[in-house]
Design a protein around this nucleic acid. Structure first.
Lengths: 228, 228
DNA sequence: GTCTATATCTTGATAGAC
DNA sequence: GTCTATCAAGATATAGAC
């Protein structure tokens, strides 16, 4: 089976790449969605912080490390951001906004069947976590390091994303297209899949993004008891 | 629907308890498995560190904070542990060992049908995350803060746990009891459910631990295409 | 905007009395 | 085992020259 290597990697017996087996995520490429990276040094700071925060966490990363990764003096960072926390806040918000935009876009393009809508939602959810695993890990696991004020805008986006999924599930249950013993528990389980992907996915090893999206969409349809 | 409050909480509109909505986990009770807590001050340190690490992370918690929570002088901690990292290492290992012990125990008590074995494994996996959410969060999200040497024993336990699940899934696929397009991807998705529970579960709000275990077992059986 | 230099504070960990 | 006292390093952030 081609996926044997992945099973071994997930069991911790094969580290992804040359890294240690207890890394927080398997991916390495530092990438931000198109059109959202600020120009110049500000953007460089954001990308460097993304790489470091995803690997070592917010509290495990110092301003000096970020500056060194960018190739600037630590003091220069403060010409672009008022604090280290504000750098994290921008990343966390970017991640959540991108998620909402892509999920709502996918839902708009889906047809009228709730099964199709669910598949579109779950596929897109998987794809964004394949495309931006570092951003997803930072947005999700470092959100708690923000003050309530700085976390607020991201939480608003998160709430909207939850609503999208829950609406599709309850619609499907109401129309009889789905058959679930507990729509909320099912929604929770499906929503958890995306974040998990960000931790283990490495492009083409052994799956590509499309295979992951299809696989999880199929699983979700089974979970909701969609009539085949 | 009774679970509406949970949906609202997960969307971030109702914080669990009085805490901030961006907490890393919803639970609050600091608990360690029976018979594993060291006696005296060493045990108090472990419990205090568990509460703080789960909330603020390893790098977000200082030795002084741990000592203050225990009611001892910071220097006293070093009479029981050689470093802060060693406190974390003990927690991480305890969590992983407990998981392996309970999973393998559940599997031994299950009958010969692979569907029953899967249900037993998934139920137990859910239950332990309901019972010890703080320990689960620390064991999983702070493992990366350990050196390779200190993380090793926990990783060994983790590998064994992965094997248990993957064996049941491939057995079920071989016997025809299950029907999956991709057993590895399915195993990954099912394994991810447990950790997720540790983040959102609060006893009785609105589910009790048994309902969560049953719900996830049912979902897993659907995911593997078990013949009803 | 970027730098040098530094203020101020907190950190993990140790020495040594009791 | 627990304390007081403290060290040395690293943290975030600022002042001010260019």
């Amino acid at each position: 089976m081609m996926a044997d290597r992945l099973a071994e990697r997930l069991a911790g017996r094969i580290p992804a790449g040359a890294a240690s087996p207890q890394r927080r995520l398997a991916a390495v490429a530092v990438e931000l969605p198109d059109g959202v990276t600020p120009p110049g040094t500000r953007g460089s700071i954001l990308r460097a912080a993304l790489g470091l925060f995803s690997e070592f966490g917010f509290h495990g990363t110092s301003v000096r490390q970020i500056a060194a990764a960018v190739g600037i003096n630590p003091a220069t960072l403060y010409a672009h951001y008022p604090s280290k926390e504000h750098v994290l806040a921008e990343l966390v918000f970017l991640g959540h906004r991108e998620l909402y935009l892509r999920l709502s876009g996918a839902l708009e393009q889906a047809g009228p069947s709730t099964a199709g809508q669910l598949a579109a939602l779950v596929s897109e959810h998987a794809l964004i976590h394949c495309d931006y695993p570092l951003l997803a890990v930072v947005a999700n696991t470092e959100l708690h390091a923000l003050s309530a004020e700085l976390a607020g805008p991201a939480l608003e986006m998160r709430a909207r994303c939850s609503d999208l999924l829950l609406t599709v599930l309850t619609d499907g249950a109401a129309s009889g297209e789905f058959e679930m013993s507990d729509p909320v528990l099912t929604a929770i389980a499906i929503a958890g899949h995306g974040m998990h992907i960000a931790h283990w996915f490495v492009p083409g090893d052994p799956y590509d993004r499309g295979q992951v999206a299809d696989g999880y969409a199929q699983l979700a349809l089974r979970m909701v008891g969609a009539r085949a």
